[in-house]
């Protein structure tokens, strides 16, 4: 299409200025980007910005607050419960992520083998991920119940313990218990993503490695792991984000107890902001999660994606 000069019976455009503007690449690209950009602005940037702003105010539920600078943060850093929640969140995320990745990768490797009923098995593996979180959380709540735990009951039947295990009544027991629940729920996501990655690795690489005399461990170490690294880093990023911001499991199983030993930053933010009405402080806690999340993201992007093409450059 040319500049709008017309011959051969075509009519001149009704709005020449508009037609010229539409021919301008800058204008056109701005128009094309507008829908996506406005969605981003309205649904991501605005709420995030509002959250950050609220962290600097003394807003209550439903009442816009006044700017109070860093007061919320100063106050939070003197608050033992907040500091404990940061500690809990870091422990929870670190241990759960390591376990999810270890077990998830193992499961993916198993599923990558030629198995009978492959499709059905893969679908079954996804189940924990498909069940709504709250439902599985309630199931775990029963499993860990001090009076009705099936685990305690079974161990007692076998004569291995003489009193029920206090899964959720002791701080470290409770932390481990919620971590196990999170790992159970998170493995399928990791496994299925990594399985997809495994299937993109060309068999010829393994053949070549085998011809070179590589054993199973060497094939895994020098073929599988490097080839899997790009997807691994993406899955790791998501997994860390999901775990760090977990809410439902904790809320249904312990509500942050006992003695706040399983309160994560997300659950504490909710408790203070909504039932407690301290919106500004809740927002500040939520905002305090951002540096951790950014650090985790940067680590998995730049720490694990060493090849240039993974960082958006050409692979020379």
């Amino acid at each position: 299409m040319s500049q709008g000069v017309i011959d051969g019976g075509l009519k001149p455009p009704a709005f020449p200025a508009l037609a010229r503007a539409l021919d301008n690449r800058l204008v056109l690209s701005a128009i094309f980007m507008f829908p996506a950009l406005s969605i981003l602005l309205v649904f991501l940037t605005y709420p995030l910005g509002l959250g950050v702003w609220m962290g600097f105010t003394d807003a209550r539920v439903g009442r816009p607050g006044e700017f109070i600078g860093l007061e919320n943060y100063v106050s939070l850093f003197q608050d033992s419960v907040f500091l404990l929640s940061v500690f809990n969140t870091l422990v929870y995320t670190a241990i759960a992520t390591v376990l999810k990745f270890g077990l998830g990768l193992w499961l993916a490797l198993l599923l990558n083998n030629a198995l009978p009923f492959k499709a059905i098995i893969r679908a079954v593996v996804l189940l924990p991920y498909i069940v709504p979180t709250v439902l599985s959380a309630i199931a775990f709540w029963w499993i860990y119940d001090p009076q009705f735990s099936i685990v305690s009951w079974a161990l007692k039947q076998f004569g291995l313990i003489d009193r029920y295990i206090d899964f959720l009544g002791e701080p470290w027991n409770a932390r481990w218990s919620v971590i196990v629940a999170n790992v159970w729920r998170g493995i399928p996501f990791v496994a299925i993503c990594l399985l997809a990655g495994l299937q993109t690795i060309s068999p010829s690489l393994y053949e070549a490695a085998a011809l070179d005399g590589a054993n199973a461990w060497q094939r895994f170490r020098h073929v599988t792991v490097p080839m899997l690294m790009p997807i691994l880093s993406v899955v790791l990023t998501f997994s860390v984000l999901f775990t760090f911001t977990d809410f439902q499991l904790i809320y249904a199983i312990t509500r942050g107890g006992p003695l706040n030993s399983t309160h994560l930053m997300a659950t504490l933010a909710f408790q203070r902001a909504i039932p407690g009405g301290q919106m500004g402080e809740g927002a500040a806690i939520a905002v305090a999660m951002i540096p951790f999340l950014v650090a985790a993201t940067l680590f998995s992007y730049y720490g694990l994606q060493r090849r240039k093409w993974q960082q958006g450059e050409s692979n020379d």
Partner: peptide
């Protein structure tokens, strides 16, 4: 107290009571 009350949420005592514990 019966063991486990540190972790009890609102429904816990109802369950234990009705179970005769």
């Amino acid at each position: 107290f019966v063991p486990g009350t540190l972790s009890w949420l609102d429904p816990s005592n109802n369950k234990a009571f009705l179970d005769g514990q």
